[in-house]
């Protein structure tokens, strides 16, 4: 199996166009942090390594928007935005060693998704190369935009089976002034239900994840527990804290570093099987429009051609 490394969009477009012309299947990878089982399995595929298409293209802190190439790692985004007291709250299950492009292409969620939005909600615009080698842009860099049909939503979450993302613009958030993590033992007595009510209420946490059994141990918790992250200004967090203590008198402050491990541990169960996800006639027509020769990550969805 051959691997081709790509450094820019033009080369990528040329490579894909050539593959389109002779029907060569392409396996798209960036940082390669996804398990092998989630890649296409068709033999004879060329691996397209896009990890060198990297770099932040534009970051205007005052606008809370950022545009970066797909190969940029989440860690790089984290570092650049943290300097301005901001973040790109993707924080997906897995690690920050992964790429921005793959996170958006797979629309991977994370503990902050409920509070701060899924990848589709954060995406403002994209550039990508489809299965015919066309370089396509959708959306833009401003925070509100309805110009044209929505290629951004189409491509985010399409797992590289319609196009290869090369650049994405997202909205950012200001980091909360106060950000603290608590652990809440799941010691029966209705605590799970009370946490659920808390999540629905005005003092909803930034994140709330439950860990049981082996998962709890893997995260370093001594027993089944929920990790709860409270964020906001001082007044809000003070009130949220007492709401949390009302939900559980055993709630205790926890080291926020736990989230790194929690994201890794949680990643395994969320890797859903993709088989059959695009097998409706409309899905197939979409596929035929953007990847007519089925060269992009073929077999990933176990789709019929």
């Amino acid at each position: 199996m051959t691997t081709t490394s790509i450094t820019n969009v033009r080369d990528l477009a040329d490579t894909v166009r050539a593959a389109f012309e002779d029907g060569t299947p392409l396996r798209i990878t960036t940082c390669g942090t996804w398990p092998e089982s989630l890649r296409s399995v068709r033999s004879g595929a060329t691996t397209l390594d896009c990890s060198a298409i990297t770099g932040i293209v534009e970051y205007i802190p005052g606008d809370l928007t950022l545009t970066a190439r797909a190969g940029t790692t989440l860690a790089e985004l984290e570092e650049a935005t943290a300097r301005h007291g901001q973040w790109c709250p993707l924080s997906p299950w897995g690690t920050d060693a992964g790429s921005f492009g793959a996170t958006m292409a797979t629309a991977t969620r994370g503990p902050l998704t409920t509070a701060l939005g899924a990848p589709r909600d954060l995406a403002l615009g994209i550039e990508c190369v489809d299965g015919t080698g066309a370089v396509i842009r959708g959306g833009g860099r401003v925070v509100k935009n309805v110009a044209g049909f929505d290629l951004t939503r189409l491509m985010v979450g399409s797992w590289g089976t319609l196009a290869i993302l090369t650049e994405i613009s997202v909205r950012l958030r200001a980091r909360p002034a106060v950000d603290e993590t608590w652990s809440v033992p799941l010691d029966g007595d209705g605590v799970t239900e009370r946490l659920h009510v808390l999540r629905q209420g005005v003092y909803a946490p930034l994140a709330c994840e439950m860990f049981h059994g082996a998962a709890a141990r893997a995260v370093g918790l001594s027993a089944d527990a929920a990790l709860v992250r409270l964020g906001g200004n001082a007044g809000f967090v003070a009130a949220a804290r007492s709401a949390l203590r009302t939900a559980s008198t055993n709630a205790a402050p926890h080291d926020p570093a736990v989230w790194t491990r929690a994201r890794e541990v949680h990643a395994a169960p969320v890797l859903q099987t993709l088989a059959g996800a695009i097998d409706r006639p409309l899905d197939r027509r979409v596929k035929a429009q953007f990847d007519p020769r089925h060269i992009l990550n073929p077999g990933l969805f176990a789709e019929s051609a």
Binding site: R153, L154, A277, I278, D283
Partner: peptide, 10 residues
């Protein structure tokens, strides 16, 4: 819990 193209979004 569901993958697939975001045709709702489109």
């Amino acid at each position: 819990d569901r993958a697939g193209y975001d045709l709702m979004g489109a």
